[in-house]
Write a protein that binds this DNA or RNA. Sequence first.
DNA 1: CTTGACCCTCCAGCTACTGGAACCCCCATA
DNA 2: TATGGGGGTTCCAGTAGCTGGAGGGTCAAG
Lengths: 131, 131
Amino acid sequence: MNIGEVAQQSGLPPKTIRYYEDIGLVNPPRDTNGYRAFRASDIHKLSFLGRARALGFTIEDCRNLLALWEDKTRASHDVRVIAKEHLTQIEAKITDLQAMRDTLSTLVRDCAGDDRPDCPILQKLETLPKP
Amino acid sequence: MNIGEVAQQSGLPPKTIRYYEDIGLVNPPRDTNGYRAFRASDIHKLSFLGRARALGFTIEDCRNLLALWEDKTRASHDVRVIAKEHLTQIEAKITDLQAMRDTLSTLVRDCAGDDRPDCPILQKLETLPKP
DNA sequence: CTTGACCCTCCAGCTACTGGAACCCCCATA
DNA sequence: TATGGGGGTTCCAGTAGCTGGAGGGTCAAG
């Protein structure tokens, strides 16, 4: 199967698929004309990658998950460790963003947003405590 | 004032300060020995930048905010637009991450995390609906 | 035979820095 | 006066994860 169709099926752009081959996440064979000839297993892998990436796993995480996925004898423990670690990071990011949001929404609320030059947003950016 | 002390005061690493000069966010004059000689206004600007970046504003946002900050006649409206836009983006990001967290924490909860190979995490990564 | 939709590779650029090499400068001490 | 250490300087390269574009080959339809 050519890359275009694979892109459709996996939901990944062709550029991304080529990139994933570049960094060794997939390794489709080639036709005589040089076109990549994706097998069912490649497509399956790419879909897996798409979902893992959509969950915010890094490429390195994906590489590890893929290895575990292919190893039918791995312990679920190993997978869980990666997922849990990632979950922790996501939660930290959420907390960060929520703090930003709270500060920002206060600022936005307090700013008249009219023609006058007084602006609490800029004022606070001068005086906010350092993070 | 030399870059090291400015780094202390502003909370930004020297490398970052040089980078900010590179991209034109600050423009400190030079001593005869070639050292950057930061003025009070430069330090003030850098602190402003540090706080804006900590709130997640992009460099381009910062450039705009800085321009508005220096323009004593600007309308608070202009600032508010940038902040609100940014707030919307942050909220979208939070929503995204929360969705990820929910999915992931379900997966982690359902995974035994023991020596056996059965792992719902990998199973779901095979079958989850495409994002 | 041409057209247009594919496919290929390679190179550059994006964000916001960060690390490192190679070198210069200033001050204090032996 | 030499020297050592802790500043400072520039420039180059690399990070993550793609994305855009140039310049070219391939294939099926008309």
